[in-house]
């Protein structure tokens, strides 16, 4: 009897496996056809596990970047040179929090919870943009961040408006609408400094010197060495390669630096008339690897600040939960 049962169940398991495989193959083909036809993938669609994992990785990394990115700029809210600049910076940092929320919510459509995402960040399993591990030392850094970091983010995010995962693409459309303000306020700070005193110009130049190379690294490793690029491109999660986007950013930024009258810290930078693009020097990828793997100037500070803020906010979450437990009918009544 026992043997018989075992045989039956293993036979059943074989049948199940075969039908699962047939189902997967059919679903896979449908998924591939959808991607090929430029259709968006929506939350309730069947999708390969690897695709789901990859979207969660990419979107949560993007969300974490928005949130951690508030720290270097938040550093200057209390020390902005005028009330106007302070109000602007405050509004910009608020926007970044909102962008993080759009992206976390879009990530949660894939069945992962906010708590899991935050935990992955705190345990160092999830990454965020390496650039936010650099310190914002002077007021000019606030200008450079808006101009270069948001400028680079825009290049990337415009491309992602056409990403294959629907909720991600829609979040990008919303975010891009707000980004232009961020970049322009940064450039305006740079322009004001560059049209100011020698000391102000020197401050702007110093900020460009420190932020230029990390901004180029924001696009990720060269295509040939990027761990996820080829797969993400074939899934149309990424629409343009790291190197293409980086080149686009350089081409748009060099004339902006020329207009400011400050120098991009790259002696190899020059116009290439035959390619129609700027040539640029070698990027120090060992620095990128060091910073992304946790050993940049501010990694520990950024993460410990986030953990502290999260822990400090625990009483709010606990209070909300206690309130809901005490007044289960309240929200229904009001409706």
């Amino acid at each position: 009897m026992t043997t018989q049962l075992l045989d039956d169940s293993s036979e059943q398991a074989r049948l199940d496996a075969r039908s699962d495989a047939r189902f997967d193959a059919r679903s896979d083909a449908r998924f591939d056809a959808r991607i090929a036809a430029e259709e968006r993938v929506e939350p309730k669609d069947w999708m390969p596990d690897a695709y789901r994992r990859n979207v969660i990785r990419q979107m949560s990394q993007h969300a974490h970047s928005e949130v951690i990115g508030m720290q270097p700029e938040g550093n200057w809210i209390g020390r902005a040179p005028t009330l106007k600049r302070k109000a602007i910076l405050l509004a910009k940092v608020q926007d970044e929090a909102g962008h993080g929320l759009y992206l976390y919510s879009a990530t949660e459509t894939l069945g992962v919870t906010r708590e899991e995402l935050v935990e992955a960040l705190h345990q160092g399993r999830a990454k965020y943009a390496s650039i936010f591990n650099y310190p914002s030392l002077t007021w000019a850094d606030v200008g450079a961040i808006g101009w270069l970091v948001d400028g680079a983010a825009i290049v990337n995010q415009i491309s992602l408006q056409r990403t294959s995962y629907g909720p991600y693409a829609r979040a990008m459309v919303r975010i891009c609408k707000e980004e232009s303000f961020h970049m322009r306020q940064g450039y305006e700070i740079m322009l004001t400094l560059c049209r100011g005193s020698d000391a102000q110009r020197a401050m702007a130049q110093d900020a460009l010197n420190r932020w230029w190379w990390p901004s180029l690294m924001m696009f990720g490793p060269p295509d040939a060495e990027s761990a996820h690029s080829a797969q993400s491109m074939s899934w149309k999660l990424k629409r343009q390669s790291n190197d293409e986007l980086r080149q686009k950013f350089i081409d748009q930024t060099v004339p902006q630096a020329d207009f400011l009258g400050i120098d991009i810290p790259d002696p190899a930078l020059c116009w290439n008339a035959s390619s129609g693009h700027y040539n640029f020097g070698d990027i120090d990828w060992s620095e990128f690897q060091r910073v992304i793997s946790g050993d940049g100037p501010c990694n520990r500070e950024r993460l410990s600040h986030h953990v502290r803020a999260h822990d400090d906010g625990a009483w709010v979450r606990e209070t909300l939960q206690a309130y809901r437990a005490k007044h289960p009918a309240r929200s229904a009544e009001r409706a």
């Binding site: 109000a87 509004a91 303000f181 322009r184 306020q185 450039y187 305006e188």
Partner: peptide, 8 residues
């Protein structure tokens, strides 16, 4: 109004 790109 500074929350809009056109402000700059």
């Amino acid at each position: 109004p500074y929350r809009h790109a056109t402000f700059y």
